[in-house]
Design a protein around this nucleic acid. Sequence first.
DNA 1: TCGATAATTGTTATCGATAACAATTCCCTG
DNA 2: CAGGGAATTGTTATCGATAACAATTATCGA
Lengths: 337, 337
Amino acid sequence: MRKRAVSMLDVAAYSHVSHQTVSRVLNNHKNVSFKTRSKVLEAIKELGYAPNLAARALSNGKTTTIGVLSYNSTLFGPASMLHAVQNAARDVGYAVTLATTKGVNEIAISAGIKELVQSGVDGIILITPLTRGNQISKETLSGTPCVIVEGESLKDIPSVNVDQLTGAQKAVEYLITLGHTNIAHISGPSTWYEASKRREGWKKALKNAGLELGPLEFGDWSANSGYRAIKEIVKGSNATAVFVANDAMALGVLKALNELKVKVPTEMSVAGFDDIPESEFLIPGLTTIRQDFLSVGKLSLELLMDRIEKRTRDSFHIAIQPELIVRKSTAPLITKR
Amino acid sequence: MRKRAVSMLDVAAYSHVSHQTVSRVLNNHKNVSFKTRSKVLEAIKELGYAPNLAARALSNGKTTTIGVLSYNSTLFGPASMLHAVQNAARDVGYAVTLATTKGVNEIAISAGIKELVQSGVDGIILITPLTRGNQISKETLSGTPCVIVEGESLKDIPSVNVDQLTGAQKAVEYLITLGHTNIAHISGPSTWYEASKRREGWKKALKNAGLELGPLEFGDWSANSGYRAIKEIVKGSNATAVFVANDAMALGVLKALNELKVKVPTEMSVAGFDDIPESEFLIPGLTTIRQDFLSVGKLSLELLMDRIEKRTRDSFHIAIQPELIVRKSTAPLITKR
DNA sequence: TCGATAATTGTTATCGATAACAATTCCCTG
DNA sequence: CAGGGAATTGTTATCGATAACAATTATCGA
């Protein structure tokens, strides 16, 4: 029973070459004769050799690991992107280490970044809702390449974003074409980048149509907060449609309206944002904006790999267009007379 | 501008001690005088030193990293457990690297484990639905400590499980106390451990009450599969209650019943399993079984740390009791006469 | 005050890979 | 067939930490 795992030297001895040659075979150097290469490969298979990644990392300064910093990986969006990133990373031979922040403030994010930098990752993907205030100092990154996902674009740092503003605008414009003129909005927390963009989109669509802003409430992305917010809106206004900043809150909205005996969509149209898997099966099916999280995840990894491997790219900030999914929770305004 | 990051030798030079003493300070060895310790600590702070983890790993064979292998981290359960594990790991100074499997078969799982082992993790948490067939060979683990979460208990490998059988039994027993005698079940995929346990619980409860088995359908955990399954059940039987193996499928069930104009709960009682955040806000609120994923995650990490640090423990297999959450989707049977 | 023992500090070897450079072999041309 | 350049292989140093052991300094009781 052997105690230590087989190392490169064992392989070298077994195949009667130097360990350097083994290294060359492993790293696909061109100047290795076919004969020795196959000899070495056979030895590797025979002995069940696997390189020691710590040694490699120490030697060449690369860990072939990327870090993902996420706010709350339980939410559908972050979880999907994490999944996509992880899959894409594996395909290019990179491991993924995960870190999560407790809050969305600058301190928590910096701490998370430091944690990852210290662990030696080759690059970082930030799935954190950075807003303007949250500048990432070069200090904390200390040279580690980085890509921002779903956060305010900074000039030096590549980013991948779903075009939140346009997405929100599409949803509200759709409500407008249905004849609604008093359109409320339930926004996400004011500190979140996505929330502010969606709010902007709502405003822009209304302004473009020459309509006044409808009532505005703030939630915290949870169904419960949507539940509470819509009750305020119904009580305090006569809005006939509501654009909700995410599907989870929209779920709470549907629940509250059901309890209040306000019929959806005939008395109130509801549109969400995200297209979570549940949306299709709500009662009624939720009209919403679909974000292609998988593409976002995949693209962000591509950008990061470019950075890590010092490739340059013209597209520094990538915006993905979301898609309007029309279901049964929205309907033309019935004019009362 | 310094090129290389500061190393232990820099700290040693700065504080006029040997690098070994610096190492001792870092690792909290007892035999370091207060004076030198503070001198070194100051130097560390002054120079902004952070240990190189690759070097440490190479030297002592530990990476202070654990691996989590998950089936599909987008699902609520795995995502929650991953989150809990990651938090708990950070608290004890461990990093988390993530791997995902494409399938639930033995080959895919083994591949995932190998990937993690090769990356050098100190321990592995398996959030994969292991069934009997899926034996983990000692070979693939090659000595790496491992904990199974939500999978069939193997004698050698510690595990943390929610008591699926009892949970399912509780749900069905509750339906029985409401007077239902024809209780259907929509199960998860037959290869999944959780699915088979929940199916067993359903059978056991019915048997204990002297009732016959109701209709049984299989889904794939998705809302859509629940949607289809309940249509079969309604068409082919006169069940008055259905126990659905997870909340996502229950969502589809509610949708289908709504379309079929079967009233819930008066004409059909529906109970789910998981208590996802949405469940409370479904229409009607879903009666379900709550699994404490966070505790499961935390406990599994504890078990793993015991293994890594060679502590022994009497409780090798831990079972957590789930909780029945009664909401509005279940009601007493109205006897037609 | 001496010596034994404990507490503290230092020196050298080691982990397993890659980098840089040196040496050898091969092949082709004049 | 000599010689030059390319292709192939080998040797040694290095990455930055810990392990093992050696050396030095404190501390205490007789």
